[in-house]
Design a protein around this nucleic acid. Structure first.
Lengths: 213, 213
DNA sequence: CTGCCTGTGTGACTTTATCACTGAATCCGG
DNA sequence: CCGGATTCAGTGATAAAGTCACACAGGCAG
């Protein structure tokens, strides 16, 4: 059953119509929901799981732009839906996910008839713009070692202290090269802040590098 | 008289209401339309001129995110309007601009009553997301010398071959440090692609640096 | 066990960022 | 017109990050 907070805001009859027009689907980790160049067939609602959105540059390098989780809306799709252009990024399932697609016609109807739905869409758009602006700032001005440490710390804050991730995957998270990640991790290990193994990073005592600035 | 294509799409009675609720204002170059932290009082429509939107990082460095010109919509404001959060960026007039602000109430009414208006807003949002994604890719993966050359070339394509701009301003355009721009420009001058003077860059024979990759 | 594939480590070198200055051009008040 | 302040630009030294090339290690399939 498709459960998404933006549907809860709808009035009864409209919600009934909406739920009829949707069917939730499950996607396993690794599944590609859409990739660059593809066209958009509707607005995906993320019901559960975790999906990362990343793009690949001309150089062949990739960078993760943001993640979508339970109750998120794939706002990126709206632009494609409206302008008819293809996606510029790709979406890959990380943790098994459940999603439902709102077809174009239904989307238009919901936008027309529900102020609450519109509000939800606009809020989601605002958040995404914010995410991207922060990312630009981070990529343009922050040091790699700090970004890596912060990324790892964010995971630690989630309660995870052993990450099954390769240096290459970390490099894509940060938009840098694998070698750079390897070297920085090695440095963290020397300082006793992480322990490394093949495909694994264990967080031991991670703290901010004492940097002035 | 407020002329903006998104208003043209409105039906007669609605357009009349809209035009009554708006008053266009002129802003001189250098004028700050909004700055980081400020709250949003409505949706600005750009009628004419050129406005740049830039953000400043914790480091104190700034980067230009995108520009708005005639017939643009300041989509960034919608997110702020909807969530009530303050702006994260600032908008500065470059070429004398004319703009009108759609107050919150009128915006809601237009979104409610005009599918064309909604479409215009969504398209604008899509374009903005696209711009930012491209910017991320560029900042993360492109070499500075190429970015500088491309930026200059884009201006040359506009018909301008003498730019009145300082190295510092160019650095903000690209999100780098002034010294870096100075050195790269000097290198371009050595190759005879530009001629430099205080506050001035004259484009002579600019072409892509013969780079492999 | 033996390849084979994927992941990691590292040296050498280039590009970019940062810091600390110097000097040149312009502006402004008297 | 002069002198001082201010804004711009140039540059050396050094650190951080990206690139290229390659060695080697772990784990899996045959």
């Amino acid at each position: 059953m498709a459960r998404h907070s933006i549907l809860d805001t709808l009035h009864d009859s409209l919600r009934k119509d909406a739920l009829e027009g949707l069917r939730a689907m499950r996607f396993p980790p690794g599944q590609v929901l859409f990739s660059a160049g593809e066209h958009c067939r509707g607005l995906p609602l993320v019901l559960d799981g975790s999906i990362k959105v990343q793009m690949t540059g001309a150089s062949g390098h990739s960078i993760v732009l943001y993640r979508m989780g339970a109750d998120d809306i794939c706002t990126l799709s709206i632009g494609c839906l409206m302008t008819g252009r293809g996606y510029r990024a790709e979406a890959i399932v990380e943790e098994e996910a459940e999603a439902a697609i709102i077809p174009r016609g239904l989307f238009d109807r919901l936008m027309d008839q529900s102020a609450e739905f519109r509000l939800g869409i606009m809020e989601s758009y605002g958040r995404r713009l914010d995410d991207l602006m922060l990312l630009v700032e981070e990529v343009a001005f922050h040091r790699m070692d700090e970004r890596l440490a912060e990324w790892l710390q964010a995971r630690a804050a989630d309660g995870q202290s052993v990450l099954n991730i390769t240096h290459q995957e970390l490099a894509v998270e940060l938009g840098t090269a694998r070698e750079v990640v390897s070297r920085l991790l090695k440095e963290l290990e020397r300082r006793g802040q992480v322990r490394l193994a093949r495909g694994r990073v264990e967080l031991t005592g991670l703290r901010k590098t004492a940097s002035p600035a």
